[in-house]
Amino acid sequence: MSRLPVKKTYKLFIGGAFPRSESGRTYEAEGQNVARASRKDVRDAVRAARGALPKWAGMTAYNRGQVLYRIAEMVEARAAEFADLCSGRDEVERTIDRVVWYAGWADKFAQVIGSSNPVAGPYFNFTVPEPTGVVATLAPDEPPLLGLVSRVAPALTGGNAVVVVASETRPLAAIELAEALATSDVPGGVVNILTGNRAELAPWLAAHMDVNAIDIAGADGIAPELERAAADNVKRVVRGRADAQSPWEIAAFMELKTVWHPVGR
């Protein structure tokens, strides 16, 4: 008689821990029972992200690059598992390479995006990019792993904390990723992953007053509604593309701060 495998319970990833949805709900996706997050889980995830933000944003860029690189290592180590949960080996490899690509940007993008500004007066003036804060990401449905990572990685590279709603139909890769993240060096709360009904969760994120930006890559038909709600606190709305890879993707999640100081004896 063959051995009965021990099946995994698929949970949410909030603040570095794996809670069930506070609602106790699950839904079936990819043949598994997956946690179906509620608005209160959204609330908890945003709170965790806000709490994790200062440390992550305040880390040296070099350090953040190393932490991102470590994510690539952890995904590589689980490459086989990931391949089963997405379109295959190729998607996993592209995902890993993308994370490595962004890891290398962490201590460089400021030099590309920032500037020193030659003002007409006795002042030194410079502009630096800073993370906008808590970013809500609606991951695209496809590709389930690369799409999510393509949206989350640039936000993380810039020092933001992220609450991501995984693909509703293909959530397992996202949960696998959460497990990789949990065993990487990413501080708890920097990435929070929710699974569930996107149409139910997205409006709570779009209207949340403590979310600074929303990436509506996976918003499908409800984008206008989300954009309207986002105006309540002048949220930055990023219309991300699933396959993008560029330093300007990082810039989309950055604020620019300009500092003036007199030059005098």
Binding site: S115, N117, P118, V119, A120, G121, Y123, N125, T127, T132, N212, N233, V234, E255, L256, K257, T258, V259, W260, H261, P262
Partner: peptide, 21 residues
């Protein structure tokens, strides 16, 4: 978006201006 240190209300066309939040 703009921090004036030891000065205030300075503007220049080469200096980016705009807000957070």
């Amino acid at each position: 978006g703009v921090v004036w240190a030891n000065t205030y209300n300075r503007f220049d066309p080469s200096s980016p201006f705009g807000g957070y939040k």
